[in-house]
Design a protein around this nucleic acid. Sequence first.
DNA 1: CTGAAAGCGCTAACAC
DNA 2: GTGTTAGCGCTTTCAG
Lengths: 332, 332
Amino acid sequence: MKPTIHHVAERAQVSKATVSRVLNRNPQVKDEIRERVLRVIEELGYHPSAIARNLATNKTNMIGLILPDITNPYFPVLARGIEDAAHRLGYALFISNTDNDPKLEREYIHKMVEQQVGGIVLISSTLDEQTVQDLASLRTPIVLCDRLIANTPFDAVLIDDYKAAYEAVSFLIGKGHKQVAHLAGPKNIQSAENRKLGYLHAMRDANLEPFVSVGSFTYESGVHQMGSVLEEYKPTALFASNDLLALGAIHEINLRGLRVPEDVAVIGCDDIPFSKMSRPLLSTISIPVYQIGVTAVQLLDDQMKGVRSGTKNMILEHKLIHRESCGGVENK
Amino acid sequence: MKPTIHHVAERAQVSKATVSRVLNRNPQVKDEIRERVLRVIEELGYHPSAIARNLATNKTNMIGLILPDITNPYFPVLARGIEDAAHRLGYALFISNTDNDPKLEREYIHKMVEQQVGGIVLISSTLDEQTVQDLASLRTPIVLCDRLIANTPFDAVLIDDYKAAYEAVSFLIGKGHKQVAHLAGPKNIQSAENRKLGYLHAMRDANLEPFVSVGSFTYESGVHQMGSVLEEYKPTALFASNDLLALGAIHEINLRGLRVPEDVAVIGCDDIPFSKMSRPLLSTISIPVYQIGVTAVQLLDDQMKGVRSGTKNMILEHKLIHRESCGGVENK
DNA sequence: CTGAAAGCGCTAACAC
DNA sequence: GTGTTAGCGCTTTCAG
């Protein structure tokens, strides 16, 4: 049996209250007694039960992270930012993968609420109206990442996907490209849609004919989509909605005997770690993922502490990273 | 205020005990009453408090995962295996990154124990004698991944790193290579050491002169180490202790105007997702990471349920994956 | 089939 | 300074 505060109290010949005081660093305990208690705690290998404490204080030191898939290279850095910030603020972190399955999302959210988490960082693309209602009635603070839902009490932290895409495409156009294709992400993912819009508008503003191929946010999808793009459009440049797609596209381009960037310039989005390891090095839009995670937890913490009222949305800055895959850079 | 079982009971005009019964699907509740209670639960948006329940039953449905760094591409799949298995068994999962810092490891372990987790999956390379003692006295089930500690009560699940390395190197030697270098991982990581041993023995058994360069398990380290290996040893083949190292090495090899696999054949270890996206595709030792995670949780569950006594070590099967980077495979 | 009451390990007034 | 007491929200005998 694990020792409880009771055992410690008994053995140290003091009351549970006193043990509780030394546990909580209450200064008004005589040094002698404090030391005695501390010694007993050591001897017994006693660890206070956080759940009992939580129950008594009616507040917990746990928060939850719900994301699509930690296996997708975009997320580990985000998760790390969240985790680091959480621990810095004294929270333990629950984690759950949903694969973007709305049913699982709801299930995990409810599970976390039952665990009495103080708040949840939610990364989801598939929130339907009903789930949103559901969440809003939960009385549990929620912060969204990479996703904005208007008219809800949820804070959000994201980048300006539209602008990022517009800039990337304008950059390509500025280099003289007229045939710029776009590999888009799933329609139900807000950032994918916004990136597509940014692409479309940049093309329109330059009086160029757009060409969009829609797929999923995976390497395989990039390989696959690029095949038809190459056949139907003869692009000299490509803006992919994320790096995985870009990487897959490059693979397919090479397979067809074309070179990147000489024949087709490629630029992705996200700046996942692999982008710095691929050949050619991938040009991309760098997203401050780690910082997004940290910020999300800070917002959550504010909400939990009731520091703030009203919704808050944070737009973080992205950055165009010019590496090898879009040319004009000496092979270092 | 969040509704409690008390509110539900009151509103449904039954006792807390009855509400508890319907919560726990106790069949001996009259249908009529059950429905009434269920309806009230719905109306109130009531969610039972897991921590209160845990306190009452003295068992929890939480387990913890402590790993070095989710940002290292080896870990997400492992984490996913653990998470999936955990949820399947009804556990919520805590997660913490330690960066292999022994102090953080201890801190997080203790934090999780205080959270009353039922067990911990621990991925660590830096366990010193003292920490091991400490853990053993915790009365909390622990399962180790990728690491074995003899004479402890800890279960472990891993692969046979020695054998994996021996096979990889023998494979290279079998292809006629006589100058096979090794990029080793950190000395304090057990699997790195075992892989090095496997390499050494394979070379010795073939009467070949070994050449080892020790670094860390990173891409940058691969780039850096490969520089000197190329200058000092003129290898025709390379066995890298993990894929990141291999990928970095390939980068450096190419930078020096040499080709993979024509000039230097390369084989890595781990089979991280990026190995299937790199150019050339990386030959490697595939480790059943996902399965390691699943197995770890199963062992943990067994321990927690007291199903088993005594320590159990599981060695899972690795597999040599023959892709482009070691030659002899048509470029598909 | 349902209710009353005790208790899980801790904190937080309130006394002394 | 330290002890007493009453809960926190739930489960679990034990009655009825």
